[in-house]
Write a protein that binds this DNA or RNA. Structure first.
Lengths: 197, 197
DNA sequence: TCAAAAAGAACGAACGTTCGTTCATAATAT
DNA sequence: ATATTATGAACGAACGTTCGTTCTTTTTGA
């Protein structure tokens, strides 16, 4: 009881760094090989720690997968905040958001991980819970910027997001020029769809 | 040379049945557990044959996965033919097609398999080749029904399909009522998007 | 026509490997 | 001194694949 706090949390600080390094290593490998092809040995090796020690940080492989899925929501939370704070009416806000949302989804690592998670959620719905919760918030935020005369704005907001997501995913690996063309057509498409005559 | 054809191809007939049974068993298991969680023993068991015999019909697990991916294109080919033969102009043809395309994609088994294939294609592009070829034909068919004044009709046709696919996928597991509401909003959304003022 | 021979479909045990996880033990920090 | 963190060997289970073998069907030669 002499030295209660020499350096407050120096140790758990290191620990958290280790944990982050593990998660990053796991994410890289999951993108490369998929959840079930990346082994615990792979992850430990890439994180630079021993196999046994890996189990001091995570209860098992399932926990790591869950941590990755949670990590994904961080990017979404950022965009969500931007959208919620946005002022102004009309389609402009939505289209500006769509541009960013598209850019996120066409990122190869994001797209690959998304695909992996989507497939996993079909069999293990619990994995996708946080993911769906964040998406629901996005739907609400988009909904608020849709024209008032529109029916079923909640569903329409969902469709808005659906399209941007898929368009981004399909743009992966395309040359820069094509990606820009897709973005342009996407924004036109969306503008017509969210504008009432 | 006496008995040239007692029963022509009695054997290869049986053989084809077996092969179909294997593919069906594999598809069921892939939907349930995913490509890499379904084992060759699982597949053999479900197909009602021995493990060793499974390798008389398929060179390996990769071959079975490829066969399943090919199988997926069959559904698309059917819809493609319907769309290509469709007469008339304006959005009506497109919306009728969208309805069918949506129904296909909201089928749980189709959606699960699609998700699995999508994730797999990121790491093994060869798997998705036939899939992408068929999709390209769909794009062309949709493109022909878009209004003439539209720019970048190829990309827009792709977006059209993107939206329907994702909307269908997200409708999986929803109650019938919700699925109908999504379809309604989807068709409205599409109609605005493919109609020039 | 019909026995003999060739072909190949079916079987399940066994191979070597890799998996996720646990364990006894050593190093380290407080 | 003692609790925490790290290590890699060890475990049993499961993996994809190959193997020698048997059984059924088809083809051949007289």
């Amino acid at each position: 009881m002499t030295k209660i706090e020499g350096q407050p949390a120096r140790r758990s600080e290191k620990l958290q760094e280790r944990r982050l390094k593990i998660v990053e290593a796991a994410a890289t490998l999951f993108i490369e090989k998929g959840f079930h092809q990346a082994s615990m040995r792979d992850i430990a090796g890439k994180a630079g720690i021993s196999l046994g020690n890996l189990y001091n940080h995570f209860k098992g492989k399932g926990d790591i997968i869950a941590a990755i899925a949670e990590l994904e929501t961080a990017d979404l939370d950022l965009l969500l905040q931007l959208l919620e704070k946005a002022e102004g009416t009309g389609p402009d806000v939505l289209l500006a958001f769509a541009r960013q949302y598209y850019n996120l989804h066409k990122t190869p690592s994001y797209a690959a991980l998304s695909a992996e998670i989507t497939a996993e959620v079909f069999r293990n719905p619990q994995i996708g819970e946080g993911f769906l919760a964040t998406r629901q918030q996005l739907v609400s935020a988009v909904q608020r910027h849709l024209p008032p005369g529109l029916a079923n704005t909640a569903i329409t907001a969902g469709l808005f997001l659906d399209l941007v997501e898929r368009a981004g995913q399909n743009a992966v690996g395309q040359p820069q020029k094509t990606q820009s063309a897709i973005l342009g057509s996407l924004l036109d498409f969306l503008k017509r769809a969210v504008t009432l005559d």
